[in-house]
Design a protein around this nucleic acid. Sequence first.
RNA 1: GCACCUGUAGCUCAGCCUGGAUAGAGCGCUUCCCUCCUAAGGAAGAAGUCGAAGGUUCAAAUCCUUCCAGGUGCACCA
Length: 572
Amino acid sequence: MKKLVVDILVKALPEMDIKLEKEEIESMVEVPPQLDMGDYSFPCFAFAEKLKRSPHEIALELREKIGNISELDFESVDVMDGYVNFIFERQSMARKVVWDAINDKADYGSSKIGKGKKIVVEFSSPNVAKPFGIGHLRSTIIGNSLANIADFVGYKVKKVNYLGDWGSQFGKLIAAFEEIGDEDKLMKDSMDYMLKLYVKANKYKKYEKLGHETFQRLENKDRKALMMWKVFRNLSIDEFEKIYNTFKIKFDEFSGESQSVKYTGRVIEELKKKKLLKKSKGAMIVDLKKYDLGVVLIQKTDGTTLYATRDIAEAIRRYEKYKFDEMIYEVGQEQNLYFKQIFKVLELMGYDWAKVCQHVSHGLYLDKDGKKFATRKGKTILMEDILEKTKKLTAKEIKKRWPKVSKKELQRRALIVAIAAIFYGDLKNNRKKDMVFDLKKFTSFEGNTGPYLLYTYARASSILEKANTKKGNSKIKIDSVEEIGDLMPKEFELVKELSLFLDKVQESFNKLNPSVVAAYCYDVCQTFNEFYHCCPVIGSENVGFRLALVEAFRQTLRNALRLLGIDVLEEM
RNA sequence: GCACCUGUAGCUCAGCCUGGAUAGAGCGCUUCCCUCCUAAGGAAGAAGUCGAAGGUUCAAAUCCUUCCAGGUGCACCA
């Protein structure tokens, strides 16, 4: 709908001697704070100086010019305090929006702004041989949502999980295993056993030196060490996959630091050739002090590589593999400086695609007392435990309301609600900021929570269910959209809200912030509940349109939630 | 020490990029609404020096400067 307004302005503004690009106009058109002010508005303050007239006068004249060329479904175009306010004809807007939502189905709200472009999204990236902890949850949730949104706006998306599967800690781990390892235990209870081994490897001093040597063996492709490493890696991936399957998250590639090792030699050669590499204190560095970015360590004194070396190599590998148009790294904000360094080094190496690489950062999870809580009592908080705990909480609530559901069905619903609770609990926040991770609040069935959204969806589904069984027809007749009576204010508010979905998705992508879509989910649910409260569907005179409106709402919410990685329930 | 991020209602957070029409939600608190499609909902109320002070502007929570408070990062970990 916004497009219609923009198109008119594109025609009208030149008549006023105002020259603006279409994109500029698009970004100026806004949604007024009050519904009765209009559906969209165009502020004229910015032109006052140039035209040497008051914003109000300019708005009035613009209004006239629009009148001359208007042939569209507007109820009115008004001027108010320097704004030109556009009000669509209610029925025709309702018809179009509801019709679009029902017909476009899973595509409602999608666009093609990224058509022909490829984006690589790196996210989640847990460490091999360690359990999937809460520390990687934020990246997983946000990265997945960003990938979904990018796909929805037309990009070709490649999702990469960059495992922490290389580095000196594997030296220690393998060294410890070679000395005290128990193969049976490893195979039986791998994650648990690997963690124990990991703790031991870090506890005893002897593994520090031994680990050093073993890591050098790894870097030199020692067969035995490499074999052990591979076992650890595969066992870990199997374990991670279980969690991703539960979350219904799929990756295009399990990469990892190990994948880039074969490129690190080349990186070092190239850096040398371009005279970027410098010897310092026995190690090799790239000096970025003149860019205020400190120095980057590329090669340790013992000749082995570092995280940075491998990340640079990996970026090159990915570009050669995917030829991406954009690449985003969904990684915590504590690595802000680090990513600036990496991108700078790539730029200095002459890769002009370095400028399309972006670090999309997120803040920390805090506990209820506002303290950092990635670890507590020195122990990692396991994803498995969080999920179990959340499921228990949601199952309890569901059982209160549905004492008769089967155990299996209860588990199914509890899981979907639990994921909604956790994902929405995270995504409703601006990703850049630290946030309190409070399962009690996330799982509450009241207020601004994931369960509230699913409840609203289920309520809507229930209406259709009832309507269908009563009348015996299995489908809403879209034709009924043609006969729309006078719209109640709440009906129109819902129509209006549904019409904003496309704008919100695009905004969310532009900001690379899923919270825009999350906030939209909440808004549209609130509006639906208001409608639900005051506009009975079944038995009303306007039942045809209202059923269609409910279906349009369900479709829109389903699409929006899908972008957040959240499933819906028909009954809850 | 330097750099980056954050500070909005008792609590948890939107809004800040791109200044604009009465600063919004949820929880909690005080009321009201189930003979009515899931009350897990809806309506109303109380609650704010938008960290502080300056500046820019017709207009500042939003932009700039300084200060205060908290967090994070700054060489052989990832």
